[in-house]
Amino acid sequence: MRPGCFLFSWARRFFKAVIVLSLIVLSLVLFLSGCGVGSSGSSALKGKIKISGSTTLLPIAQEAAIEFSEKNPGVRIEVQGGGSSVGISQLRSRIVQIADSSRGLKGDEDDGTLVDHRIAFDIIVIVVNPDTPFRSISSTKVKDIFTGKIKNWKELGGPEKEIAVVVRDLASGTREIFDEKALGATKVKSVDSAPSAIECASNGVVREIVSSTKGAIGYLSYGYVDKTRVKPVMLNGISPNLENARVGRYPLARYLHMFTQGRPTGVTRNFVDFVLGDEFQKDVVSQEYIPVRLVERKGK
């Protein structure tokens, strides 16, 4: 044993450890400061907004959060999904400031304190593969198809071809509304979709599968209907367009909401105003839905 050598190697190890540790600390500091986006903004607006709720609205809410905090670096916005019911119950217990919802308030949720901000209008369009020779389907037939009673286009007078039903997953607000308005589901009694139905996580996937699968039928949000890839069908002879939906002739339509606890104040108000503002409605909302002012202006 050479004690000097031992000490020396200890010292070297010690310094190595110090260097490694300081590197870790440094990277942690850098990482954390990277996370704290906008903590040193020059804008007058400062604050924090928490949003949760409908997964249908999630992309729009996220886009709004990004654009809003780019303009107001002092504001931090957290957006979460979870579903409309989760968002509303979190808003009522004041965990979040804004609840996204793809449906209106129901039952005991409506205690008079929540304020509704309609931020978009959506029409659910039934689409089929372009090879399918139908232009209109009756609502009873739609129900039979989507619950699996009718399995072949032959039963509707079409060609001998299996119907491939394409639906959204259970987390989808679009599915909730479709089940309710087209299949007659209620809060008490849900309706089972066809056992062979293909469940998809997004509008885009539904469109993809319907456009590529012969004999497929599905439903899409209005903004996703691309007539070069899928064929929209009329319901009871009524075509799914803005005018028909607005006056209530076409039943598969709904508003998308943001709820706040009382009239919004502070940054929350600025945020809601931003979402309802012309710029955001035109640039973002219209990509997937119908800007809400377009519906209400025409209604007046």
């Binding site: 997964t55 999904g81 579903g83 997953d169 259970l170 987390a171 469940e199 996580a201």
Partner: peptide, 10 residues
């Protein structure tokens, strides 16, 4: 695949 499809709303 079922877990992944349904865990969001369960």
């Amino acid at each position: 695949s079922r877990i992944v499809t349904d865990m969001g709303e369960a």
